[in-house]
């Protein structure tokens, strides 16, 4: 387990992290969500030992744990080949000789670049570079992988490929910290998540718990004379001329609407339960104001 206790970090007068405490269990994917400047990258850099001048405590249950860090930037040497880049990072992590060769080939296969291993990185697409960026972080087979926005600017195929890689890491018992602005990615990949804002953790827990606690379910309805007065107060315009109605008990609300419709000779064209999303939790916790 990774335990973070009272982590604080300031850049001159700017407070980046303020008393952040979190526990991250082994073998899960843990999402970090927050608007720009929330402190996610600073927290990640502290865990990855990039930033060492902070206050508080970072403790791994296993002291000899190896960490793999996938930075937000594509930190690769573009004038050299994929194999050269993997070799370089492998050597930095202490691999050499036959072990390094073997791991290089294994990683090239894992990231789907075996055929392109000899080619210069500058000839690669964005998705290939992102995959190699991950490859360089897993060359030494770390048990703990930290990923900072690993899918920015890539095509859906590469994103899917990276998701599959992450699922494979999870099934092998690796722990992953995954920071992203894409909430659907966190929802899809992570078991737990923390929302950060203004350098603090404003909420954390399992995805299910977060959705239950903060996202109010809603119903989509399209039709005529089917929304009772009390429900119309929480009604807002939806797509295609329909309406979105928030309700704490959506099934009961749907039943009432059907009754109301029958009693008033109304007509329901579409009636759907809208699943709550992490995005709703995000806006409910951080607000919708711009953070430029």
């Amino acid at each position: 387990m990774l335990s973070l206790k009272n982590l604080s970090k300031s850049y001159k007068n700017n407070v980046a992290l303020k008393n952040v405490s979190l526990n991250i269990s082994e073998g899960i994917c843990f999402g970090l969500i927050g608007p720009n400047g929330a402190g996610k990258s600073t927290l990640i850099k502290i865990i990855a030992s990039v930033i060492q001048d902070y206050s508080g405590n970072v403790q791994f249950t296993n002291n000899k744990i190896q960490i793999g860090y996938v930075p937000q930037e594509i930190a690769l040497e573009e004038t050299l080949s994929a194999r050269d880049n993997l070799h370089f990072f492998g050597r930095l992590y202490g691999l050499k000789g036959a072990v390094l060769q073997k791991r290089t080939e294994e990683v090239l296969s894992e990231i789907g670049l075996t055929e392109r291993g000899k080619e210069k990185v500058k000839t690669f697409s964005g998705g290939m570079k992102r995959r190699l960026n991950i490859g360089c972080a897993i060359i030494h087979q770390p048990r703990f992988i930290i990923m900072d926005e690993p899918t920015v600017g890539i095509d859906p195929q590469s994103r899917r490929y990276i998701f599959n890689m992450i699922e494979k890491f999870k099934s092998n018992g690796f722990t992953i910290i995954y920071a992203s602005h894409y909430m659907e990615e966190i929802e899809q990949l992570c078991e737990e998540a923390a929302f950060m804002d203004h350098g603090k953790v404003v909420e954390n827990g399992s995805i299910e718990h977060l959705l239950k606690k903060h996202a109010v379910p809603s119903i989509y309805v399209k039709g005529r004379m089917c929304v009772p007065d009390d429900l119309s107060q929480t009604c807002s315009k939806g797509k295609d001329g329909g309406y979105l109605i928030t309700a704490n008990n959506p099934l009961a609300a749907m039943e009432r609407m059907i009754h109301f419709c029958n009693e008033n000779s109304g007509e329901i064209e579409r009636l759907e339960l809208v699943k709550p999303k992490l995005e709703d939790v995000f806006f409910s916790l951080t607000g919708s104001q711009l953070r430029d």
Partner: peptide, 9 residues
């Protein structure tokens, strides 16, 4: 390109 940060890790 973030290489320094990465090497620091």
């Amino acid at each position: 390109i973030g290489m320094v940060t990465r090497i620091e890790s």
